[in-house]
């Protein structure tokens, strides 16, 4: 039995009368690629913020990397990585400075940072760009670099919020290769996306509608259950009935 790294049990978040996340329950195993789908405003961001220790739940229980989301948010933050399409790297810092900064935040030693960044830059073919400002890198490279930086400190779990938005199809696949490699090393991937083909790359997928998890299974089983040809169809069937927006 592999280790469970995320558990949620009837996790709920209310903002006043508004129930953003309504009693969601699931488990994510170590090394799993877990797709977290839902329409805009279904409550994905709220749930993700609770798992990252940024938002206190209203009720229910959850633990991330074995730590409680109510009491042990500091420990949680040390064991996770985070990357989103909107915020990732500092555009006005160089590649090297960004790596040093993020690794420094997680308390990595100077020598460890040095050693690891050489490896990383080789792997990404970025060795020649160490002193380039991030803003002058092509978007695809930025996103790949941002992901690598997010897992630089070897977190147990990495949360990816629409990491591939607007990226070209080849780079998008290269990005997913990085995700696979990380998962094989035992890092758990928790990812949101609007690309339905990417949902197929996940081990399991959950689909949120109006604050609740309406479906959770492997892409294959989901398609079977909903008699759909693709994840796109599954998603449409479930989300068409959604009532609320953001």
């Amino acid at each position: 039995m592999t280790e469970t790294v995320i558990t949620a049990d009837k996790l709920t978040k209310k903002f006043g009368d508004f129930i953003a996340t309504n009693e969601i329950s699931f488990e994510v195993k170590k090394g799993e690629i877990f797709g977290f789908l839902g329409a805009n405003g279904a409550g994905k961001t709220t749930a993700m913020r609770m798992f990252c220790g940024l938002l206190m739940p209203s009720s229910g229980a959850a633990s991330v990397a074995g730590f409680d989301v109510y009491k042990q948010t500091e420990q949680i933050k040390k064991s996770i990585g985070y990357m989103s399409q909107r915020f990732s790297l500092y555009e006005d810092l160089t590649v090297k400075e960004n790596i040093r900064f993020y690794a420094g935040i997680y308390g990595m030693s100077r020598s460890a940072i040095k050693e690891k960044s050489v490896l990383l830059l080789n792997q990404l073919n970025l060795s020649g760009e160490v002193n380039t400002l991030v803003k002058s890198l092509p978007l695809g490279w930025k996103q790949k670099l941002a992901f690598s930086v997010a897992i630089f400190h070897e977190p147990k779990i990495v949360f990816l919020d629409e990491p591939t938005g607007g990226v070209d199809p080849i780079t998008r696949r290269e990005f997913w290769n990085l995700i696979y490699q990380a998962a094989e090393r035992g890092i758990t991937i928790f990812v949101t996306t609007h690309y339905m083909d990417e949902a197929e790359y996940c081990n399991r997928v959950s689909i949120m509608v109006d604050g609740k998890i309406e479906a959770l299974d492997t892409p294959r089983n989901l398609k079977k259950t909903y008699a759909a040809k693709s994840m796109d169809e599954v998603f449409l069937q479930l989300v068409r009935g959604a009532k609320r927006g953001e």
């Binding site: 329409a39 339905m196 796109d232 998603f235 068409r240 959604a242």
Partner: peptide, 13 residues
């Protein structure tokens, strides 16, 4: 210009 960027599949349809 990119009216559907960041929008979910249903709204896009």
């Amino acid at each position: 210009d990119e009216p559907t960027t960041g929008v979910d599949a249903v709204s896009r349809k």
